[in-house]
Nucleic acid binder design. Structure first.
Length: 577
RNA sequence: UGGGACGUCGCCAAGUUGGUAAGGCACGGGAUUUUGAUUCCCGCAUUCGUAGGUUCGAGUCCUACCGUCCCAGCCA
């Protein structure tokens, strides 16, 4: 994890630095990553994960994984399991695994304290009425008719809410703040609502559930969080975050957190500080949970881990190394500016990591036969290839060579465009690791299509011979037609055809911009040893790109590869290919 | 005159007491190369949303304006 040690500077890191210098929290740093288990983690979450775990790691602090599970109608165990796997895969491990629901009893005790202090009341208004009383962005709201109930009545009603005496939606517990505030979050926000539905973690123990603003700040304090990092849209919520913690003063009211200690959970409440940063967006993709969910449910992709999805499980299956994702977010930086990062930045990180870590192999994806006429029909040879051009530590491997080869159809042109460096009739090209071959014949089928090439290998240009230094314009890759094995290869491209699929100003929605070419499956030929490698092994197929053995479908004897990313190709770019 | 935030190169992003615009990606050019890959050089904002002002000097201070994003869930 070298990328975390060279931590780039950003405003949050500076705040932490200053806080430590000032001796806040005794110099302690504690963060948390608090996903709601209502979907899979995506690249955007990775930014928050890298930030929270990265800050904790840099300062010798701790970072908890906390499931923000306060809304049982949306959450599911499937997600809590997938999220843990994704965080681990990204390369992080949490100090403690917590659930907001672990604190339900604490939230309840805190609510009673607010009621006793005259800071919260039970409101009988319906959802529609609350909306009407709230006012608008430019007009103040009006006080609820239930705002001045006595402490005794509020306490009685709230206890009966918990006991299940009232119907869903019939009452809420509300904070008593200011119905005229310019900040709508302060217009007596709901703290608790009635939902008689079972919860993925607490079963049917509760029928009242706390709201995010109320639960989140208390959860942070209870866990001793020092810096509570969240995204920009919560900036308006910070006054409420601070209000709750100020009313409750958890550090000085141990009786409120007593249930936790009784349950054996460590608990030394802090007074955390919420700091907001901008989400990270990528072009040519969508990142909202709702849209990702729709892509899955509408069958537009093969699942949450479809290699075209910006989910972490999708990135994993696509072959993006976790280190590349970490590097990416480090490069992108952390600020308060809304931004859309070009996908090429991510691809660059992926190539950078894979160039250094992926062993090289030969594979032909669009095969055309090339017969070396000046080799005996039974000619068999085993060539030794380095596994990495710049790192001998990768060792070497044996590559079978014979008279009949597969080469890339693209690497032969009868009428070459200018600047074409590959094989042409009568022309020469280097076969990677073999020598220079000259094309002496082109075989066509009845329709005139090229079906086979014949050539001669110049024996003086074989590796080790003096002629091996001879220059030719191009080098192409190949595999032995008698030894290579067929493999299913999935060629992925971006899922959307437009930079901003979320833009609906032309009246079209993101699903109208799906790229029909985002997946092309071909059967190619790969070095035989690739049939035996483990799923998720990554390789560079020389001159083609980086490929990964599919996590689920690759099996011994049935190789399946996903193209992670192509190699940079200045030739294709120059000719507009 | 509802509240909150943000505007530095095509995309990110440094710039913390005002002293004369880092870096990355992308892009263009060149070298090396048995991957048109990698690597290596070189180039790439007289200018910091705009207009004024203060100052010997402003991206950094002041004023006004313009633009973008977020907020009216008993979602998070």
């Amino acid at each position: 994890m070298t990328d975390a040690s060279s931590a780039s500077n950003n405003f949050i890191r500076q705040i932490v630095l200053e806080d430590r210098a000032a001796g806040k929290h005794g110099g302690r740093v504690a963060t948390r990553f608090p996903p709601e288990p209502n979907g899979y983690l995506h690249l955007g979450h990775a930014k928050s994960i890298c930030l929270n775990f990265g800050i904790a790691r840099e300062f010798g602090g701790t970072c908890n994984l906390r499931f923000d599970d306060t809304n049982p109608t949306k959450e599911d165990l499937e997600y809590v399991e997938a999220i843990q796997a994704d965080v681990r895969w990204l390369g992080f491990d949490w100090h403690e695994l917590r659930h907001a629901s672990d604190y339900f009893e604490v939230f309840y005790l805190c609510a009673e304290k607010l009621i006793r202090d005259g800071k919260a009341y039970v409101c009988d208004l319906s959802a529609d009425e609350v909306r009407a009383y709230r006012g608008t962005l430019t007009e103040p709201g009006r006080d609820s008719p239930w705002r001045e109930r006595s402490v005794e009545e509020n306490l009685d009603l709230f206890r009966r809410m918990r006991a299940g005496e009232f119907a869903d939606g019939s009452r809420t517990l509300r904070a008593k703040i200011d119905m005229a505030s310019g900040n709508i979050n302060l217009r007596d926000p709901a703290l608790y609502r009635i939902r008689k539905v079972p919860h993925q973690n607490t079963g049917d123990a509760w029928c009242i559930y706390p709201m995010y603003d109320y639960a989140h700040c208390i959860s942070d304090a209870v866990e001793g969080i020092t810096h509570s990092l969240c995204t920009l849209e919560f900036e308006d919520h910070r006054p409420l975050y601070d209000w709750c913690l100020e009313q409750l003063d958890l550090p000085n009211h141990p009786e409120l957190t007593e249930p936790l200690r009784r349950a054996g959970l460590a608990c030394t409440p802090s007074r955390p500080q919420q700091i907001e940063f901008a989400r990270g967006n990528l072009d040519y993709t969508v990142m909202s949970k709702r849209k990702l969910m729709a892509l899955v449910q509408d069958g537009l992709v093969a699942g949450w881990d479809d290699p075209r999805m910006p989910t972490l499980s999708g990135a994993r299956r696509r072959g993006f190394p976790p280190a590349a994702i970490r590097l990416f977010w480090e490069r992108a930086g952390v600020t308060k500016q809304n931004s859309v990062i070009e996908f090429s930045v991510l691809e660059g990180c992926v190539r950078e990591v894979l160039d250094a870590t992926a062993p090289r192999r030969l594979a032909v994806l669009d095969p055309l036969k090339l017969v070396i006429d000046n080799l005996a029909d039974d000619h068999r040879e085993t060539l030794t290839f380095p596994n990495h051009p710049k790192n001998d530590g990768f060792g070497t491997r044996a590559v079978a060579f014979c008279r009949e080869l597969w080469i890339e159809r693209d690497d032969f042109r009868e009428v070459p465009p200018k600047g074409f460096h590959r094989l042409v009739p009568g022309g020469e090209v280097r076969l990677r690791g073999v020598g220079i071959v000259k094309c002496i014949d082109v075989v066509r089928d009845a329709s005139g299509a090229v079906v086979e090439l014949h050539g001669t290998l110049d024996p003086d240009t074989r590796p080790g011979r003096p002629g091996a230094e001879r220059k030719v314009k191009g080098t192409i890759h190949w595999v032995s037609a008698r030894d290579a094995v067929p493999a299913e290869v999935r060629l992925y491209d971006r899922l959307f055809t437009v930079p901003d699929p979320d833009d609906t100003s032309d009246g079209r929605s993101y699903s109208d911009h799906l790229n029909p070419q985002s997946l092309r499956t071909v059967t190619g030929y790969v070095e035989a040893s690739l049939a035996a490698i483990a799923p998720e092994s990554a390789f560079q197929f020389e001159r083609l790109g980086y490929f990964v053995a599919d996590r689920h479908d690759h099996a011994p004897g049935r190789p399946v590869f996903n193209r992670t990313v192509t190699l940079r190709d200045s030739y294709a770019k120059a000719v507009g290919g």
